[in-house]
Design a protein around this nucleic acid. Structure first.
Lengths: 194, 194
DNA sequence: AAGTTATATATAACAAGTTATATAGTATGT
DNA sequence: ACATACTATATAACTTGTTATATATAACTT
């Protein structure tokens, strides 16, 4: 599945240990595919069993030893194979806790729900900042981690950031519209009652 | 977690069996929270153990017996409690297989990647259609399943559909911009080489 | 008549993701 | 000096989600 290929993809940039891989994840692709440390460690052993990566132990005097993983030719092939075979059917289904609550929003007070929409907007503004931070580190990584050309590598990274930004911006607009509609709905209700 | 509350939420509309619950899921909240049949069955037993639902067996002459679940007062309270307690931190992290491949898009031919962006657009157009179909059935359900007022119930359902539509529309715009940028990038590269 | 699809009912096995726990050094704050 | 946080290393337990399997009837398809 996708996690293993995300990991193999990052390992094409160079050998890494689990902890390091997690840091790179968070600074590069967490907005596209998130991973927890424990998942990464488990997946690294699975990948090793499959022969997609090999590991060596690096002794350290300060702190515990490191296990450094490198991608194998078999691993590179598997990654490239996955990469070129995009799925036919892209998933339509979602799992969004906030949206689920909104679905049942009629069971809440108008004031409460407006407060939640406002909180949603402030959270999305935070997410925009996070994306900007990730974007800033791209030029650092692209010079370190270049496969073909840093420019081409960065182009695609920016596509994913752009997707995130555009989506967040539209969600903010959506929430603002919902608030407006709720306020209108309430006032018309009050008028009817009079 | 969310699945159980999605199920409890639907059960506030009336008693249902697992199979039926799945159908309602697909026609109402799959765009917000998806569930598979096996998950639903497992979760129903968990909910029963917790006392949030009770079940009776309905004998049937044609086909196997049905187990009809009803929400209990305890279940209603748990649902309402969940509903009013929106999480402070909304998740920033994502898991999107398509976007992950785009992240590594520099390893593919320009032609291939443009083809995938085009396929993405056509899939998103399909998803728009699915959302429209879900939206159409809302008025049917809102008259059957009304808690307070059908109008208020539908208002929130429409918010979730609107969110889906706005997001999909912006994703299409994003993909179109990516294609344009890729074409420009390639031609400028060719020019540089000349 | 035989095969496929849909309705109806689930359970079992497996894979993936989250949370808790364990260990230990280094740095920073009060 | 003591606590908290961060770096660094993971493993274990638990929860959630997906895929495969099982059974049986009815309706539609070729």
């Amino acid at each position: 599945m996708s996690l293993s290929y995300a990991m193999l993809g990052l390992l094409t940039y160079g050998p890494m240990n689990g902890y390091n891989l997690k840091k790179i994840f968070d600074k590069s692709i967490s907005h596209v595919w998130a991973a927890s440390l424990s998942q990464i460690y488990r997946e690294l052993s699975t990948l090793e069993k499959k022969g997609y990566v090999t590991s060596i132990i690096q002794k350290q005097e300060d702190g515990p030893d490191k296990r450094i993983y490198s991608i194998t030719d078999l691993g590179r092939d598997a990654f490239q194979d996955w990469l070129k075979n995009f799925p036919e059917q892209l998933s339509f289904y979602q799992r969004d806790e906030f949206m689920l609550r909104i679905f049942f929003g009629s069971r809440l007070e108008k004031k409460e729900i407006i407060k939640e929409f406002e909180h949603f907007i402030s959270q999305k503004l935070d997410h925009l900042k996070k994306l900007n931070e990730i974007e800033k580190t791209f030029n650092i990584y692209s010079s370190e981690f270049t496969v073909e050309s840093a420019e081409k590598e960065e182009l695609f990274w920016h596509f994913t950031i752009k997707q995130g930004k555009m989506t967040i911006e539209v969600l903010i607009k959506w929430a603002e519209e919902c608030i407006k509609q709720l306020e209108e709905y309430n006032s018309s209700k009050i008028n009817l009652k009079k």
